Amino acid sequence: MTPSHNETKLSTRGFHEKSPEARETLETVGATFLDGYAFAVEARDQDEAHQRLERIPVRFRGFAYEGAAMGLAMLDGLPIPGNGRISAFLAGHGAPHGYMVHVGVGWAMARLPRFRWASIAPADPLLRWLALDGYGFHQAYFRTQRYVREQYRDPSFPWPGDETRRYAGHAVDQGIGRALWFIGGTDPAVVADLVDSFAADRRADLYSGVGLAACYAGGAGEAELLYLLERAGQYRPQLAQGVAFASTTRVESGLLTPHTEMAARLLCGMSPQQVTEVCSRARPEPVVDGRLTAYEVWRREIAERVSSDAPEARA
């Protein structure tokens, strides 16, 4: 149930290779994720796993925490003694990496039988949707033909088991959008063409995921990011919202990188710290779902606030 390192290579996946540098970045992301998974499942306790995770270089450390979360969620989801590892991780060393931990749970969802999902479902009423983002990424990354080429959409997604389940497809699409950044090899033209191949009603969520990956994983230069902004067109607010989530994740975990600062400046017109403040101020408290989920209301408010200051795309 665990991917091998070979499965994260672009040549194995058949993903676009823009350059040797881009390939190295994306393959290092995949390898680091799997290292984090191994650290978590092999460690005697959370402290031991934390010590190993903290040795990962800053640029890739968040992916190791994401992999660690998948590993812990897999253990929670299997019929073996012990549970509550994910909640303990979120309350402990995983707390600064909350976004990534929730996404990692989604990877476990994709590998576990559906009847085991209840044992790993995140308790946070707002960030729980990031688990489905992680699920969508996994499916697009490993089942690219069906989820990207054939653009499969599950018409009766079983999670969560309440009245908000109608939103599940949107959260999954946000994860698929993140995966498109990898499938397109960080090449904005290829990625934008992939987004454009989907039905129009899915592109806003897809561009949100693209923005998050472009800002968090990196791999594109200034001119490429400006081209991506131009191609996003009417979906620039959603692109910027994804950048805002990525910036917040890196700022809150203390893993800020130059490419995140560049993406926030170019696509949001703000510093990562300013974008993080926007996300924090817009965060709903208490979380109350209505006609729209509180998570979607939050995302829309962020999109409106950060995109209004983004520079115009250049031809």
Results as ranks from 00 to 15, higher is better:
A240D: 02
G36V: 11
S271W: 05
V306T: 14
A168S: 15
A123W: 04
T12L: 13
L239D: 06
R52V: 10
R59T: 15
R111F: 14
H102T: 12
G77A: 01
P158F: 07
A310Y: 09
Q241T: 05
R153W: 06
V191R: 11
L228F: 05
E54L: 14
A118D: 03
G254R: 10
V41P: 09
E304Y: 07
M1N: 13
E17S: 13
E66T: 03
G177A: 05
D173L: 13
Y207E: 03
T25V: 15
N6S: 15
A313W: 01
P286C: 10
E24V: 12
I176Y: 03
H102C: 12
T186P: 08
P125M: 10
D193T: 08
F89N: 03
L90I: 06
R203D: 14
R165E: 03
R111V: 10
G30T: 12
D35K: 14
A69G: 08
T2Y: 11
A199W: 15
L180Q: 02
A91G: 14
P113S: 08
S247F: 05
G92R: 11
E42Y: 08
L228V: 05
P258M: 01
S119I: 01
S4Q: 15
R299M: 07
W181R: 07
G233F: 09
D133Y: 01
A40Q: 09
G82P: 02
I302A: 11
L53K: 06
P57M: 12
E163L: 08
A88Y: 02
A140T: 10
E27S: 09
V191D: 00
A49Q: 10
L267N: 01
